[in-house]
Amino acid sequence: VMYTLTSLSPAESAFDMDRSSGALVVARQLDRETRPEHRLEVRALDTSTSSNPQSSAVLVRVDITDVNDNAPRWERDPVVIAVPEDAAVGAAVGNFSATDADAGPNGELRYFLDSVEPENGRSKFAVDRLTGSLTLLEGVDFESVARYTLVVSVKDQAVNE
């Protein structure tokens, strides 16, 4: 029996096949984010006889599973948010939003407020871990402090974040 491989997906095949053993081998770098599945046709052909060769084919779907190869990305950096000094305590005054191309926990994001400058502003702001929403916890006063600098980080939920 001899084996042949045909890619049914439009792009060039990322796989090769050993014609004699039928081993399916990775021939190009895979990337789930670009192409999560590959459809192939493997055909087995008997070669012992030249008079009436027979063949049959099987469809193979190769699912590419995710690894955490993308870090979260911020849409903007820095983010500038204007908060009126009469903003109500408890009001959502901004939203932090990052994206991650990976799947499942590898792309699931959590937001953290790392630091606030000046430091006495630490008690004034809270960032929701899940949504990235920025909430005012205490009143602000333009005449006392006109600008706060917040460092917000985002992490994916992979084991190797």
């Binding site: 399916l24 081998v25 990775v26 190009r28 770098q29 895979l30 193979v60 699912d63 995710d66």
Partner: peptide
């Protein structure tokens, strides 16, 4: 159906 991680190196044998 065959599953393969996206970080395998070229030459990796996916299946037989």
């Amino acid at each position: 159906m065959v599953k393969v991680r996206e970080d395998v190196s070229i030459g990796f044998v996916v299946g037989n």
